[in-house]
Design a protein around this nucleic acid. Structure first.
Lengths: 189, 189
DNA sequence: TCCTGCTATGCAACTCGTTGCATAAACAAG
DNA sequence: CTTGTTTATGCAACGAGTTGCATAGCAGGA
């Protein structure tokens, strides 16, 4: 299980509450992990019990108090251990690919709308990533001197973001390819 | 839940036993879905109880008998209904991306070996896909006339395979990018 | 002959993830 | 002044997915 470790990385980059973590996992640039708030709260409790993170009650004005979590020394060393373990093959579920192959046994043309919808989502996410890249990495190194994160953190966040950008571009191009195929099959019926 | 539907598509393309399905999900070209054999056997029972698939006991020589499943009419219409539903956003878990961002709080250079290992896996899979493409789609339409699958099935399988190829190429290029970044940070320490 | 590996199926227990629901305080819009 | 939205946390139940184990026939090699 890696949700713990994803939370550790996120809290190291910036301490925050369970709610804030949930929002980061939801609409963060990078978009490389998902988790619901229930999952996050449950795991935060376990991590606190294990001594990986520390809580600080933060009273806020105009909104409910929050519990701000930050990573403790044992948490940091747990992350270090995890980083040295090899990654086990992850389970892959590309529902759209299943539907595309399944369309052969139904009406291929009926899938066009859904594929177009997905392509729009990927275009939107690409725009979002590119905007984030301009905002966070579009300035010179001198301007970045006042950043909270160390240089390595910035560089690696940028590398992961470049991966997201490459992924979205690939998907947009592939879905173009799929649309051409679906439309050709639709006409041929 | 879409495992049922992935199984329906696979059985429509070619009927088979639970064991064969497990192997297809494991090392099939396309590589777009994973499931263990336990999961598959359990779901097959449910699908049979629901009348989506039919069993045929097939005695074999030199190996244990198998139960060959094929899709029934209700199964086909269940697939049709599912195809018309919009896909809900899938949960994304890119463990390698988490590790790359986490490396900023440990030794970035220590991740080089793991990233190289992943790149090798993607290169291998790319080779595997390209070999499958030459084998299954490298011949002319005339040669394909004796294929069991209808044209639409072949075309759409090929489109999904092209997606897999594009994905692997993108990953190989991105991991090159990541390796350059990790090595630069390693030297800078 | 024994051991390993492949085909083929399955149970039981457990963990992970999702869904529905609930609470509560503050603010903005009507 | 009521309704809806955002921030913020949480419980309980359920369903999906994983892991460990078990069985059994047959093939091939040491």
């Amino acid at each position: 299980m890696a949700l713990e470790h994803a939370i550790l990385v996120s809290l190291l980059e910036k301490p925050g509450s369970g709610y804030e973590l949930a929002r980061r996992f939801e609409r963060s640039i990078g978009h490389f992990w998902t988790a619901t708030h229930q999952q996050i709260y449950r795991v935060l409790k376990r991590m606190e019990a294990d001594g990986w993170i520390e809580v600080r009650e933060v009273p806020q004005q105009g909104r409910p108090d929050k519990k701000e979590y930050s990573v403790s020394a044992p948490g940091l060393s747990a992350l270090g251990e995890w980083l040295h373990e090899p990654i086990r093959p992850e389970s892959v579920r590309h529902e759209l690919a299943v539907k595309i192959r399944g369309a052969a046994f139904d009406d291929p043309h009926a899938l066009v709308g859904e594929v177009e919808r997905h392509q729009r989502m990927h275009r939107d996410r690409l725009e979002h990533y590119l905007a984030g890249e301009r905002r966070d990495f579009g300035r010179s190194d001198a301007d970045a001197a006042d950043d909270e994160l160390p240089d390595a953190g910035r560089e690696l966040q940028h590398a992961v973001l470049r991966g997201g950008i490459a992924y979205e571009r690939m998907m947009i191009a592939w879905l173009d390819d799929v649309l051409v195929t679906l439309r050709r099959l639709g006409r041929a019926r």
